[in-house]
């Protein structure tokens, strides 16, 4: 315990910098991926032709190992190998791949009679989607976002093998000198970040679905 504290104090400036980088490397792709997945997931749900390219093709993207993705993207984007943009782009792609299916499934999970009721009350197609179908799909979409956020946080650590400067460097440092302190610190930081993201998303999901609380009480 003492050893951990000493290491943390001695390297605090660097660890603080790495923590901030890790936070945005993990958070930005979740938001970007979700923003892209909402319209595309709707297309995949609404139109049969869009289901194949978005849902099936994207499940292939998900099988590409991240280490390879981090180094194929520089070729496709014309970026430098160590550019953090590669990590953001790779994780955005993974998040999108996961969420496009979740959004389509979430929209499909809304019962047909609920939509028929909304139509009967005079909702236009757009109002049905935005004020009935989408809010009701929030729990399913939220569950998907939780998985994406937690898995992103741990994927960021893999980028340290490529050399991107973030908390994963603690693992590499520990391995190079055979010392446990940086490794344990790294694990603690990554798990804390992942669980914090998870908690934030759970809270947002609850806020967006107030009727769940009403039913429960």
């Amino acid at each position: 315990m003492n050893e951990l504290w000493t290491y943390l104090e001695a390297n605090w400036t660097q660890i603080r910098g790495w923590t901030l980088t890790t936070l945005w490397l993990a958070a930005v792709p979740v938001m970007a991926g979700l923003v892209l997945a909402l319209p595309c997931g709707w297309l995949a749900h609404r139109y049969r032709w869009a289901h194949g390219p978005f849902v099936s093709a994207m499940s292939i993207v998900y099988t590409v190992p991240s280490l390879v993705m981090f180094l194929v993207l520089p070729e496709l984007l014309g970026t430098k190998i160590l550019d953090p943009v590669n990590v953001v782009a790779a994780l955005t792609l993974y998040t999108f791949a996961l969420l496009v299916r979740t959004v389509a499934d979430g929209l499909a999970s809304v019962p047909a009679h609920t939509l028929a009721t909304a139509a009967a009350m005079g909702h236009t197609a757009r109002q049905q989607l935005l004020s009935v179908q989408l809010p009701l799909a929030v729990p399913v979409i939220g569950a998907g976002v939780r998985v994406a956020a937690v898995s992103n946080a741990s994927l960021v650590s893999v980028a340290s093998v490529v050399g991107t400067s973030q908390l994963g460097q603690l693992f590499i440092a520990g391995n190079n000198v055979g010392s446990l302190a940086p490794i344990i610190l790294g694990l603690v930081f990554f798990v804390t970040i992942a669980l914090a993201f998870d908690l934030i998303i759970v809270i947002i999901t609850r806020l967006l679905t107030p009727w769940h609380k009403a039913v429960a009480s």
Binding site: V150, L170, F171, G178, I183
Partner: peptide
């Protein structure tokens, strides 16, 4: 859920050391 949050690379290096 907590296990999901553990980065594989970190756990691997921990166990190797």
């Amino acid at each position: 859920n907590a296990l999901r949050a553990v980065p594989a690379l970190g756990l691997l290096i921990f166990l190797i050391v």
